[in-house]
Design a protein around this nucleic acid. Structure first.
Length: 501
RNA sequence: GCGGCCGUGGUCUAGCCUGGACUAGGACGUGGGCUUUCCGAGCCCAAUACCCGGGUUCAAAUCCCGGCGGCCGCACCA
């Protein structure tokens, strides 16, 4: 059985410090991962790049970046619907201890539809109809709700609260202040990057399904009757997007249709231009991250997969070695969130749009950070191009931008190399670099390639004569000789080199 | 959460079935030393492992039970 790509990526991640299970030395519960030194750099680079592309350099409307609390009071999540929707009724068998989902047990045993019934009602049904453990016929007891949210109690009064199950809620909670404080006019966006928490039953696949994970999200607020869409929509209207339609899925098909973002709206497949704008933007974003469009598709979620208020959800799925997997969720949530929070809080969250009072609609692209990191790793991993593995990370994402090597471990070369290294370290540009003089030069190139170091700088005997060094490019392995005085700018410019668009 | 398979240094693994000679072997990697004038060269030295707990036994990496973790399938996945 050949070794799978996922195994290789996970091994590399462990070995070289990209990520590893949390509290490994204690064998802690699954679903938590720490980013190591290189992983932390990759994440920080990815987040910065995303903020650049979706917030700072956004010219179609204003996007405000906020940073909200991870702990949210019970009432917020009750109003949003999470308290009710994010829990499953469970019970355990008195004699064998197995745990079951009560609703499924009843449906299987009695063929009854019990959706929407309360825990107490379900317990009644089990008791009166004599539903028993399917495994050992034991009596069922200990009926309780399994929350997919982590429950907390806050302060002396032990007020009930949860770790947020998505970043989005903070944005709705801050909506009124942002519209006032920033004098925001529709359309405008609010972005947030941060942790979310879901107490998954079975977290799996390393960093793909976590109980604690990071999201990069935008809530884009707009007037529902705004058919012009974002400023500059024309610029992205020709972008080809690949959509796995509902019809195709109903036939069990896997083939996406390909059409222009503008046409997708015109043909009524994508509900509005704001959503289509993001779909097009995402295609470009991931292309820059080394994930080609042909390895992506937008899956139009089926009606039963989306909440009743959804105006259409399109998951951006990427082709991994183990199959297609969602890495961005794009949801048209209409006015649901602001409406329920108006009702829940008693605060009027409508907005004055050119003299008309209204509750704006919202489109929400939500990016899963860890999944994207994993996708980038898989798509940049190369075997066979060299005698060792090579990680062709996008240059802007790679954790280390340059490595400094003396050609040989000789005093005159190492001291010169360290001079170059410290000069780069001290630079105001704060470029991540490292110094290595261990083993042969070839081995050092191999070590650098394996973690995607963009450039390798070698100090040789000629350096001692004329203050020039060789610069080796990771992707071509070609070398150029450059002046030491030009190095800082060269490395700095190189790390912003984008390929793909 | 259910079912199946699995858990040996940093990584991959040999050994487990058929308990004892296992002071647990190897490869790669790592640290140190020598060597080395541009793509994992070579030599020497060193450190590091039987997931945790209980049981059976004169004796457990090996057999049994439980926990934790991993993989796969089902379920779940705003």
């Amino acid at each position: 059985m050949p070794e799978q790509l996922t195994d290789k990526i996970v091994q590399l991640a462990l070995r070289r410090g990209f990520f590893n299970p949390t509290a490994e030395i204690y064998r802690a519960p699954a679903g938590f991962y720490d980013l190591g030194p290189l992983g932390a750099l990759v994440k920080s680079n990815l987040v910065s790049f995303w903020i650049d592309e979706f917030v700072r350099r956004e010219t179609s409307y204003e996007v405000f970046l906020i940073d909200g609390s991870l702990i949210l009071p019970y009432d917020v999540l009750k109003a949003s619907g999470h308290v009710d929707k994010f829990s499953d009724p469970k019970a355990s068998c008195k004699s064998c201890g197995r745990i079951y989902r009560v609703d499924q047990l009843i449906e299987e045993a009695l063929g009854l539809k019990v959706e929407g019934k309360s825990l107490e009602e379900l317990e009644q049904i089990v008791k009166t109809r004599g539903v028993r453990c399917p495994h050992c016929r034991g009596e069922l007891s200990d009926f309780r709700e399994h929350h997919l949210m982590f429950k907390l109690s806050v302060g002396g009064a032990e007020e009930s609260a949860f770790l947020r199950p998505e970043t989005a809620q903070n944005i709705f909670l801050n909506f009124k202040r942002i519209t006032y404080g920033m004098r925001a006019k529709l359309p405008f966006g609010v972005a947030q990057v941060g942790k979310s928490f879901r107490n998954e039953i079975a977290p799996r696949q390393s960093v793909i399904r976590l109980r604690e994970f990071s999201q990069m999200e935008i809530e884009l607020f707009f007037a529902p009757n705004d058919e012009r869409g974002p400023r500059g929509f024309e610029e992205v209207a020709d972008t080809e997007i690949r959509i796995l339609t509902r019809e195709e899925q109903l036939h069990g098909g896997e083939e996406p249709i390909e059409l222009k973002a503008g046409d997708a709206v015109a043909e009524g497949i994508v509900p509005n231009r704001f959503l289509a704008y993001y779909l097009a933007k995402e295609v470009r974003f991931f292309k820059l991250l080394g994930i080609p469009p042909e390895n992506t598709r937008f899956r139009h979620l089926l009606p039963e997969e989306t909440p009743h208020y959804s105006g259409g959800n399109f998951d951006l799925e990427v082709k991994f070695s183990f199959g297609w997997k969602e890495i961005v969720g794009n949801a048209y949530r209409r006015d649901y969130d602001l409406t329920v929070h108006s009702r829940g809080s008693g605060e009027d969250l409508s907005i004055d749009n050119n003299g008309v009072k209204m509750i704006p609609h919202v489109v929400e692209p939500s990016f899963g950070v860890e999944r994207i990191i994993y996708a980038i790793l898989e798509h940049s991993y190369r075997e066979g191009e060299r005698d060792w593995p090579l990680l062709k990370l996008p240059r802007i994402i790679s954790p280390i931008k340059a490595a400094i090597f003396p050609l040989l471990d000789r005093e005159n070369l190492t001291s010169k190399a360290l001079d170059v290294y410290y000069a780069l370290k001290r630079s105001r540009k704060a470029i991540p670099v490292y110094y290595d003089d261990r083993g042969s030069i070839g081995r050092r190139y191999a070590r650098a390639d394996e973690v995607g170091v963009n450039l390798c700088i070698t100090i040789d005997y000629q350096t001692l004569q004329d203050d020039t060094v060789t610069v080796r490019d990771r992707d071509t392995a070609e070398q150029a000789r450059v002046k030491i005085s030009d190095l800082e700018d060269l490395i700095y410019n190189d790390m912003f080199r984008l390929e793909g668009v």
